[in-house]
């Protein structure tokens, strides 16, 4: 599905990631951890082709990213849902339109009832007409998750999705991600919240990957 083979990424003369080899199997659940600045976000960006590797190979759905045209990358991103810590919306459009945006840009109408169900699933059914700037941090994260899954993607990449929310909301978001994984989605969550990882491992067989000294390794049994 998504595979890294000796991938590296250099920026400004320095090497951020080196010799990264990784294969995300369908339906797997991975946590990506490591100190701030270790390269978690960079790895995720490589996984949805916002960045291209400076060495090695990254393959998305059996296609090498360097061989993808701009249109190919756009189409590939429709199969990957992304949730950022500092999630961004189109502030002039109501929440429902923002969540529906992936369908809109793909030229698909979508069923309004499905949209309402999705908003209810993330607990935002009553905020369909609200504008994004009026939402709280937790509401924005849940809205981002709804937007990430509306295209029924194969993979969901979440970059510090609980970074701006309290513990209760973190658990709620985790529950949603676990539900999605049980539905067959491949999940990758970048986080430095070890408690969240422990909570998740109690619910799903998640693997924990740690980025240390520019390289990726499987975390120990303590996690």
């Amino acid at each position: 599905m998504i595979a890294f083979e000796n991938a590296a990424y250099n920026y400004g003369g320095g090497e951020l990631l080196s010799e990264v080899s990784l294969r995300l199997a369908p339906g797997s659940f991975h946590f990506l951890t490591g100190p701030s600045g270790a390269g978690k976000t960079t790895l995720l960006k490589l996984a949805y082709a916002e960045l291209l590797p400076t060495a090695g190979h990254v393959t998305l759905f059996d296609r090498e990213v360097r061989g993808l045209s701009r249109d190919d990358i756009a189409h590939t991103r429709r199969r990957i849902g992304v949730v950022h810590q500092d999630v961004q919306f189109l502030d002039h459009l109501p929440l429902a339109a923002n969540v529906q945006l992936p369908l809109t840009v793909a030229g698909k109408g979508g069923d309004l009832r499905d949209l309402k169900d999705l908003l209810s699933w993330v607990g935002l059914g009553h905020l369909a007409d609200a504008l994004p700037p009026t939402l709280s941090g937790g509401e924005r994260q849940r809205a981002a998750l709804a937007r990430a899954v509306i295209m029924d993607p194969d993979v969901i990449l979440a970059d510090e999705p609980t970074g701006n929310v309290d513990w209760e909301m973190s658990l709620r978001l985790l529950t949603l991600l676990v539900e999605l994984n049980r539905m067959g989605k491949t999940i990758v969550v970048a986080t430095h919240d070890l408690n969240l990882i422990r909570q998740a491992k109690a619910q799903v067989p998640a693997r924990v990957l740690r980025i240390s000294r520019r390289r990726i390794q499987l975390a120990g049994a303590d996690l």
Partner: peptide, 15 residues
């Protein structure tokens, strides 16, 4: 920012 969001959700340049 609008362009970043649109690209993230899979919008093509032509769109």
């Amino acid at each position: 920012q609008v362009i970043r969001v649109l690209r993230l959700v899979g919008a093509r340049d032509s769109y």
